Amino acid sequence: MKCLLKVFALFLGVCFLFVGCSDEPDSANSNQGGSLNNNVISGSIDSFQNKNINVTTVSCYGTGTDILGSGTISSLGRFSFPLTSPPENCLREIFDGGIFVGTISDTTALIGFYALQTFKSNQEIASYCLIRTNCNQINELRKVGVAYTCLVYSNKDVSIFGNHTITDEYADPQYSGKSVQYCSFRLKKGWNELVYKTTKRVITAYSHLEETSLTDTITSDLKWKLLSDINYQYGNAYNKNVNLIESIFLK
């Protein structure tokens, strides 16, 4: 993988998971925290205000063009719907560049990264990103200490422990850049949820260093949120998010 999660801008294809708003009463056992269970994604949007947010559908983006699932967002901001398996040709090798030091239990495993995008009732893209995070603004996603989750599909059970380093190459030798991602997670065959976190970021006039972590530990501070970004109206912000995650895996 190029740094496994420089995720939301490298995905050129789109996989849709549609979620529509509904006033149907929520079941008593709704998963308030949001999670994946038997390939079903569910959650409750933090501080959801249905009357003030014109969002009726959500779709899952990644590689490919298939519809991977659909469901509804209730008037209380809760959602739950199953995810189907993406086509095999939409998956990729875990690492395809850089230097990885550590262990990968099965190097033949193929994975794909996916994220959620909102739409209005007429399928016009909305200016909100549905993401599970500990920040409150879209432009904070790369700040030190900020974490968010991404949906990952794996065609096999696989565990990855180690660090992956990407060194940027510049024509001018006075410039330098390096990204290091510390990986500690297990993926089961099917859908998974991983946490990407920026732990260090140092930028100067001639160099940059970024350190991130990718784990399967979901902490209580991560909440499902609708983050506003006017760019989402034109489909750009979602791609930035996917690239943001893929840039971690696929720098």
Rank of each mutant, 00 (worst) to 15 (best):
L76Q: 14
V146W: 02
R92N: 09
R132C: 07
L141W: 13
T63Y: 14
T133N: 03
G71V: 00
P82W: 02
G112T: 05
K156D: 07
S74P: 04
S121Y: 09
C135V: 02
T107W: 09
S85G: 03
Y148V: 05
S74G: 02
K120I: 12
F79V: 08
I166F: 15
T133Y: 02
K156C: 03
L76K: 15
L83R: 01
Y170C: 05
I94P: 00
I67W: 08
C129Q: 10
G102E: 04
C90D: 15
L151H: 06
G64P: 06
I125T: 13
L141N: 06
A115T: 05
R132P: 04
R92A: 11
L151N: 05
A171T: 11
G112V: 01
N155E: 08
D157G: 03
G112W: 01
S159R: 05
V158Y: 01
G97M: 11
V152L: 03
G102W: 14
D66L: 09
T72I: 13
T103A: 12
Y114N: 04
A147I: 00
N136G: 07
E140C: 03
D66I: 11
C135R: 01
Y153C: 06
Q123N: 14
N136Q: 12
G77F: 01
R132M: 12
F81C: 10
L130T: 07
R92M: 09
Y61W: 09
H164W: 14
P87T: 07
I138N: 03
S127N: 10
T133F: 04
L130M: 13
Q137K: 15
D66V: 10
C129Y: 03
I131R: 02
N134Q: 14
G97Q: 12
F81R: 03
F161W: 05
